[in-house]
């Protein structure tokens, strides 16, 4: 996490606890959501692929991001990067998650207590993804 934040300068990944308990630092490592504060840089291989909140989508266009914005989920917003990375990873594995799936996957802490909206936004993102979309032009 500190390499991401301090060396690379991508500060969307947050410091919350430093011991992998709160999830504010969640990123995708080879497609899996991981808590970056507890992964020493020495454990990262040259072939590993890390995606942070900044790389999740161009222009906040990921369905999880769009659903969060549509429902005005964030309050302070500090935990939201990690929450969004966790939700995006969940939807990749389970495109139409049940409430129980969300309970089990979304273990990140939000002290503002946006949990009810987070749950609604995960369902909304799932619906948006499942709905037949008009053909899109590939990103330039």
């Amino acid at each position: 996490m500190w390499v991401i934040r301090e060396q690379i300068g991508l500060t969307g990944t947050k410091f919350g606890c430093g011991v992998a308990l709160c999830g504010a630092c969640s990123v995708h490592l080879n497609g899996e959501v991981v808590r970056s504060c507890s992964i020493p840089i020495a454990n990262i291989k040259a072939t590993d692929r890390i995606v942070t909140i900044e790389g999740l989508s161009p222009a906040s266009s990921h369905p999880v991001q769009k659903a969060r914005a549509d429902l005005d989920v964030p309050q302070c917003g500090y935990c939201q990067s990690g929450q969004i990375m966790a939700a995006a990873a969940l939807l990749r594995k389970k495109p139409t998650p049940t409430d129980q799936d969300i309970d089990e996957a979304m273990t990140n802490i939000c002290r503002c207590g946006t949990y009810q909206s987070i749950r609604a936004a995960v369902h909304r993102a799932a619906q948006a993804t499942a709905a037949p979309a008009a053909p899109r032009k590939p990103a330039a």
Partner: peptide, 16 residues
């Protein structure tokens, strides 16, 4: 970062 490669969205790098 010298040895390892990080993938990030280009749009975000330009912005954030």
């Amino acid at each position: 970062d010298s040895r390892r490669q990080f993938l990030v969205g280009s749009a975000a790098v330009a912005g954030g």
